[in-house]
Structure formats: structure tokens, C-alpha cells
Simulated scan of single mutants.
Amino acid sequence: MRKKLRVAAYAVCVRDGQILLARSPAPDGTPEWVLPGGGMEHGEDPYDTVRREVTEETGYRIEVTRLLGVDSSRRVFRRHGMWQVTDNHGVRILYAAEIAGGELRNEANGSTDLAAWQDLDAVSGLTRVRLVDVALKLWRERPAVGRLAEEPRE
């Protein structure tokens, strides 16, 4: 079995009752909303990762205001029947951030195709990744340990 570790950093930007999200295709091609952010490059600090990724995906420059927490997810994927099995472990670092400049725009030739502000009250009705819910709960509750104890681990 192949093992793969991915460390990523994401921003929770909330203002005027809205959250900044990006849209990305799921593995089956269905569009789903995600937090702006993404994978760290080798040797990159997560703080720099989140600022770079938010700018790439939304056009905004951000000021990181707080570390919200860390989320860990583990899934096993099988492709081509049983021949190719990958154990994926994702470690996601979540920051609260404020917009410091730039203009909202969509990413060109990247992993997302749309960036938009979404009403916080409407998030539950969006097709979204689990991390959006985890991040909003961390943003609202601000647990001292940076982890939601009741969340089931994948």
C-alpha cells in the first residue's frame, strides 16, 4: 500500500456575515465549495502557504489574525480494482484571517474555478467539503487545544 502525507494551510475569512470560499471540482467532477488555501511546498512555512494560496485562489492579500486549529483526515483510496491502494493522510492547519488588500477574482488555471463570499446562514445548503464545517466550528468555538473533540476522525 502506498502512503501519502499532505500538509496544507487554509484561511477562514469572515466579514459582514459572510465567509470567503472557493469552488473546486470533486473527484467525480461535481463542484463543491472549499476554504481558500492548499498544500505546502517543501520548505515552506504554513503561515506563508496560507497567504500565498489565498492570493492565488481569490486575488486577496490577507493578514493572518489567529491560529484556529489543526484537522487531520485519513482515507484509503482504491483505484483499478485492488491493484492500486493509497493511504492518504491530510493534516490541515486552519487560520483566521482578514482581507488586507487585493481584489476578488477567480483563479486562472488552478485547482479552483470560482471565489465568492457566501452568507454564513447559507453554508449548510451548499455542496461543500467537510473541512468547511470543521473550520467554521473552530472559528465559532475557538477551543483552547485547537481541536474539536467530538468530531469523528477519518
Rank of each mutant, 00 (worst) to 15 (best):
G90I: 02
A100D: 13
L104R: 04
R78T: 10
V91A: 02
L94E: 05
A108S: 09
T65E: 07
H80W: 11
I93R: 07
E63W: 06
Y95E: 01
R66D: 14
V85F: 04
D113T: 01
G102S: 10
T86H: 08
L67D: 09
G69T: 08
M82R: 15
I93C: 09
I99V: 15
N109K: 11
V76G: 06
N106W: 01
F77C: 03
Q84H: 13
R61M: 08
R92A: 10
L67F: 14
L68S: 06
V85A: 02
G69P: 04
D113K: 01
R78E: 11
N88Q: 10
W83G: 09
D71P: 00
R61F: 10
T58E: 03
Q84V: 12
R78G: 12
D87C: 07
R78I: 07
S72V: 14
G90A: 09
G59N: 04
H80R: 14
L104I: 04
E103T: 15
R66T: 05
E63N: 13
R61S: 14
G81Q: 11
E103K: 15
H80F: 11
G59W: 03
V64C: 09
N109V: 08
S111R: 06
D87L: 08
N109E: 11
I99M: 08
V85I: 15
E103W: 07
V91W: 00
R61H: 14
G59D: 00
R66M: 10
S73V: 09
A97L: 09
R105W: 07
L114D: 00
G110M: 07
R78H: 15
V64L: 11
E103V: 13
R61N: 11
L67N: 11
T112Y: 00
T65W: 06
T112M: 02
I99Y: 08
A96K: 10
V70T: 14
R105I: 11
G101W: 03
G101P: 03
V76R: 10
G81F: 05
D87F: 08
V85N: 01
L104W: 00
A96R: 12
I62K: 00
R66V: 00
V91I: 15
V64A: 09
V64S: 09
L94V: 15
Y95K: 03
W83F: 12
R75F: 12
T86R: 08
L94H: 00
M82W: 10
